[in-house]
Amino acid sequence: MTAEEHIQAASKFLLQSPPGEINDVLNDVRVLIGDDESLETGVLPALRQYNLEQLTVAEVPGAGHGSIVSIRARTTEEEDRFIDPRSKTSFIFDHLSLVRVAPTSEPFRSALEASTLQYLSSHYNDGTASVFATPDNEKCFIIQIVANKYNPVNFWSGRWRSEYVVDLEARTITGQILVNVHYYEQGNVQLETRHQSSITLPTSIAASAPSASTKKVLALIADQEGAYQESLGDTYHEMGEKTFKGLRRALPLTRQKLDWDKVLGYKLGAELSSSKGVFGGSGGSA
């Protein structure tokens, strides 16, 4: 038999493995073929088919429960990523070793999430944050922060949104801040603003030192958001003192509101006086 025929025979044995005995069958065919590298490459499609059809259970580390590996749970066929609905996470499953493979970016992502939540509790009264690892780049992470404040009793509402892309390979943080404020007491004023930012990461920040590095990342973000918040405060103050005052009707020198009924009477009296002068009046002689 050729090497290819050996692989085909081994694949058939694996697909017929009894429950819980797939590893025993794999070890037996490994001895028969004697070439682990070609065996693992050749029988991988059969192992994938077996695990998906048999609804193999993978333990989810840190969750305390198992998750079913199946076609229904698979999110991407290329890297064999599966979703665990119970913990609301996804994982990569190694069909050969039958273990869940944690992404190499997870330690840094977890540390970045911890630093982000600490920053959130220190600077936001009521906010929510999430940190994501990008699937196509293990050295790129996304931080999203949102804080809402609704106060209908006092006729105002507001929302702060910010997003930062932390790229360890490019050594940059690119972000944007979006603020929307609505004030509607006896009127309707809405302010919407957007701020773009770009930060260069120092060389001391590295994926190999997640705890210390992520704290520095959030310190840089805190400086950006703090400076922008101060600029917004200055803008609001200037708008209140200059812009909005310029839109108001100036009061007369008496500092009293005009009585428009009296103004109408003054106007009527002026018109009558003008008419009297044109058509003649008392005291004149022919």
Score class of each variant (00 low, 15 high):
119 Y>M: 08
65 H>C: 04
127 G>S: 12
102 A>N: 12
124 Y>K: 09
105 S>W: 06
86 R>A: 09
57 V>W: 00
75 T>N: 15
67 S>K: 02
132 F>C: 00
101 V>I: 14
120 L>H: 03
107 P>E: 01
58 A>K: 10
121 S>C: 03
127 G>M: 12
108 F>Q: 01
125 N>H: 12
64 G>W: 05
117 L>D: 07
69 V>N: 10
85 P>L: 13
109 R>D: 03
60 V>E: 01
126 D>H: 14
65 H>S: 07
99 V>S: 08
87 S>K: 07
95 H>R: 13
123 H>K: 12
64 G>C: 07
110 S>Q: 13
105 S>Y: 12
73 A>W: 02
81 R>V: 15
67 S>V: 02
80 D>C: 07
102 A>T: 15
116 T>R: 02
96 L>F: 14
77 E>S: 10
61 P>D: 10
107 P>R: 06
50 Y>T: 05
122 S>R: 15
61 P>F: 07
51 N>W: 04
61 P>R: 11
132 F>E: 00
131 V>P: 00
98 L>I: 10
60 V>K: 03
103 P>Q: 05
77 E>N: 08
121 S>A: 14
120 L>R: 11
109 R>N: 08
115 S>Y: 01
128 T>Y: 05
86 R>L: 11
127 G>P: 10
89 T>D: 00
87 S>E: 04
80 D>G: 09
126 D>Y: 09
109 R>C: 06
118 Q>K: 13
86 R>F: 05
74 R>E: 14
66 G>R: 13
73 A>Y: 03
128 T>A: 06
108 F>L: 06
113 E>I: 00
54 Q>C: 13
113 E>Y: 00
71 I>E: 14
116 T>Q: 01
70 S>W: 12
111 A>V: 09
106 E>L: 14
105 S>K: 04
62 G>F: 09
64 G>R: 11
92 I>P: 02
61 P>K: 09
114 A>G: 05
80 D>I: 00
55 L>P: 00
114 A>C: 01
135 P>V: 06
51 N>T: 14
123 H>M: 04
72 R>V: 13
115 S>L: 01
74 R>L: 03
66 G>I: 11
54 Q>S: 15
56 T>W: 06
54 Q>F: 09
83 I>H: 11
53 E>H: 14
127 G>W: 08
59 E>C: 03
52 L>Y: 08
124 Y>R: 10
75 T>G: 15
60 V>F: 03
69 V>W: 07
73 A>I: 02
58 A>L: 12
74 R>V: 03
128 T>G: 04
64 G>S: 07
125 N>C: 05
129 A>L: 11
86 R>M: 08
83 I>R: 13
